[in-house]
């Protein structure tokens, strides 16, 4: 039908111009739809007040050696652990070849005695156990995630279980010897 109509008019180039208008109009429609979609997608991302809460200051004075505290940062638990000499040595002595996600302990702590980690299992987001003295600490003396059975060592590195990565080390800075700011 369309071919017959074009043939009677006898203008092949007219068809090309019509195609161009279709494509140009369709293209503008897509650009317009994307421009409208952008604010709606962005609307669902973290808002200014949520972003404003992205730092937390922690006073380390009350934390004794071998103790661990949990603080909240961006709605997530952050583990602050003052490690014992034995724990630091165990973490440092582990060969990188034994790690699923190889990372030396020295790259995970600014001061060896202070280990600061986001307390969220890298598998599906549960909070691992090991902060309290009565908690199971897993086979490597660090943390154990009860949801799907991931074991972390004294550097928070994944050693066994389904989690793909080490516990995340958040960005933090020592404001003075006994205060840190996370975020």
């Amino acid at each position: 039908m369309a071919e017959a109509a074009t043939a009677t008019r006898g203008h092949a180039e007219g068809e090309t111009r019509r195609d161009f208008i279709y494509l140009a109009a369709g293209g503008m429609g897509v650009v317009g739809a994307a421009a409208v979609a952008w604010p709606f997608i962005s609307f669902m991302n973290p808002s200014a007040d949520v972003l404003a809460l992205s730092t937390t200051e922690v006073d380390l004075k009350p934390v004794q050696e071998g103790m661990a505290i949990t603080v909240t940062w961006r709605g997530k638990p952050v583990f602050v652990r003052k490690r014992t000499k034995a724990e630091i040595d165990a973490a440092a002595a582990t060969p990188l070849s034994a790690l699923p996600d190889p990372q030396p302990d020295s790259a995970r702590a600014k001061k060896p005695e202070w280990l600061i980690l986001v307390g969220v299992c890298t598998h599906l987001g549960c909070v691992p156990l090991g902060q309290k003295t009565a908690d199971p600490k897993g086979e490597f003396g660090g943390w154990f995630c009860p949801c799907h059975g991931s074991h972390y060592d004294t550097s928070g590195r994944i050693r066994k279980g389904p989690a793909p990565k080490n516990l995340e080390v958040p960005a933090y800075a020592f404001l003075d010897d006994t205060t840190i700011r996370i975020g």
Partner: peptide, 11 residues
Amino acid sequence: WLWGGFSVDNP
């Protein structure tokens, strides 16, 4: 983006 934050929260 799904959370509207950095964890499951009010948003």
